[in-house]
Design a protein around this nucleic acid. Structure first.
Length: 271
DNA sequence: CAGCGCCCCTGCCCGC
DNA sequence: TGCGGGCAGGGGCGCT
């Protein structure tokens, strides 16, 4: 589920229900996520007021006066606002109940997600400290990508998926933006021109911004609880379309694996 | 250090 | 219908 647009959609979906309200209780049903959920979390959050819900890359940050809950959805995680009477289902690992009777429910079948506590500024936390710029910020542009890619032999697709270079570009949007930019995913990052990186940075921004906008349209559904997106699927040009004709030239799209991830491109349009 | 595989885990789909 | 294999939107970690 979670590409950056969905994490941002999640943030916008949950924040209005929770910010300004205080935690009544925390129910921990399954602590074995990517890292153990701290057993002291319930005590830490008890009676504390949630000040804000922030995002850094694909991490969500629940801000309290004395620290932050650091939350990652992994591959299969999702957060929903549910009613206090909503019974927990399989894979509903954590509930945070607030004094307005809203419950923030964390569900994650594969348990690649994370839920941690930090009392230091989140930017100094080990998991966030080395993260690159936000893709939608001014710090991320073609010149930046060009500079960071010099002398690198790694495939350009892996470069843009590296969170130390730029956060939030997942497999789907890496494929999509490289297609839009006409750049072959396997090209050595150091051999892509400055001009191409300008195009690529612009396409990454455009594709993410568009998806966030569409996430907005499913906001109500999402918070309402059935939480099944899939709204962008029909707009994807290459991801999940190996063998189908390229929408630009008609040639069948190719699929290769790069860094153990499915990579789809047009061998005619992408060079 | 850059770069590459491995692996955490469940669910689902496909082919036999 | 059952079962094994492969794959899935992430990303930290350990090794070369």
């Amino acid at each position: 589920m979670p590409e950056l647009p969905e994490v941002e959609t999640t943030r916008r979906g949950i924040a209005p229900h929770l910010v300004g309200h205080s935690v009544v209780s925390v129910t921990l049903r399954q602590a074995a996520l990517r890292w153990p959920v701290p057993a002291e979390l319930p005590a830490l959050l008890q009676r504390r007021k949630l000040l804000a819900v922030n995002r850094r890359g694909k991490y969500l940050l629940l801000q309290f006066k004395h620290g932050h809950v650091l939350l990652h959805l992994g591959m299969s995680g999702n957060l929903r606002i549910v009613d206090v009477n909503q019974p927990a289902a399989r894979h509903d690992h954590v509930d945070i109940r607030f004094n307005n009777n809203a419950v923030l429910r964390f569900t994650d079948p594969r348990r690649f997600g994370a839920l941690l506590w930090t009392s230091e500024p989140p930017s100094r936390h080990d998991l966030l400290r080395h993260l690159g710029p936000e893709p939608l910020s001014d710090a991320f542009d073609g010149d930046y990508l060009f500079a960071r890619s010099r002398k690198r032999k790694q495939a350009v697709k892996l470069l843009i998926m590296d969170s130390k270079i730029v956060v939030g570009v997942g497999n789907i949007y890496a494929n999509e933006s490289l297609y839009l930019s006409g750049i072959r995913p396997g090209r050595a990052a150091g051999r892509v021109s400055r001009a191409s990186y300008h195009t690529l940075a612009a396409d990454i921004k455009a594709v993410l911004a568009k998806a966030i906008k569409q996430g907005g349209t499913t906001l109500r559904d999402f918070v309402g609880g059935d939480g099944k997106p899939g709204y962008f699927k029909q707009q994807l040009r290459v991801y999940g379309r190996a063998g189908e004709p390229c929408q630009r030239c008609g040639k069948p799209l190719k699929e290769v694996r790069l860094g153990q991830r499915s990579t789809v491109y047009c061998s005619a349009c992408q060079r």
